[in-house]
Design a protein around this nucleic acid. Sequence first.
DNA 1: CAGAAACCATACCGATTTGGTAAGGATTCG
DNA 2: CGAATCCTTACCAAATCGGTATGGTTTCTG
Lengths: 142, 142
Amino acid sequence: MRLTAKSEYGLLAMIDLACRAQDGPVSAREVSERQAVPPKYLEQLFVALRKAGLVSAVRGARGGFVLDRPAAEITVLDIVEALEGPLKPTVCDAERAAVCGKGGACAAAGVWDQATRAVREVFVSTTLDTLARDQEVLEGPA
Amino acid sequence: MRLTAKSEYGLLAMIDLACRAQDGPVSAREVSERQAVPPKYLEQLFVALRKAGLVSAVRGARGGFVLDRPAAEITVLDIVEALEGPLKPTVCDAERAAVCGKGGACAAAGVWDQATRAVREVFVSTTLDTLARDQEVLEGPA
DNA sequence: CAGAAACCATACCGATTTGGTAAGGATTCG
DNA sequence: CGAATCCTTACCAAATCGGTATGGTTTCTG
């Protein structure tokens, strides 16, 4: 369970796309400038998001990316797992359990598991449309 | 918010100490062997736990470590923060907020904050005495 | 059709963190 | 005394992170 800049940048990008869902494809360069994310790095993240089925790419001039599902059906967990892999405890994993000699009888493992579940619950219950609306409110009536 | 082997080893060590609270000081070597943690690495962790005021060290032969407070008054958060530093979001931090140009008006930041709070809640509400009892039950009546 | 705009793929790279190990010093019990 | 134990510092290999570089492929537009 680790959260890095990938998740941060990826979530910012997805919110950006959700806020402009009606404007047709949004290019990586545009997102990069608005969200202050290095452009080539962002491209890599979009590749991962596309492979996870969260966005569709439109190639060629005037191309860009579009959400592949309604924003209400995309959760933060979808985005985080697309970029960082499955959300699971980074400690007391299978390899560790093999050497600690307790055969699964480990009180510590339960704590890590609970913590992971708690994060997962937050991520699953937060959808992109909520965040997009929040962001629009935060930016104010301009 | 990152969890590494330090937290895992440290929690195992603290549970070990709690289970043997009545046996006087427990040496790092004993803990190392029981919990399958590299001995010299464990020594470093005990130093951090001591500096955080969680354990007391008894030097010299027959020395070792003892919990500095009742197990019921030591939370998992105490242990994790002693070893890994303050538990806070690793993304969208102050440095980032300075460049993203939103002046704090960022919907993404709220998600990371919620996730961190959720983990903190689990860690704060889990005390060492509970884990020690859990562990003794798991190990069975032998 | 030419070229620009955009996505796609792969490789590389410096800095930092992680998970230790090594070597020796200081303290206390027996 | 000498052994056990904690204490301190330094060092190190491997992995990860965040990002750059280079070039290719596709497609719109003039």
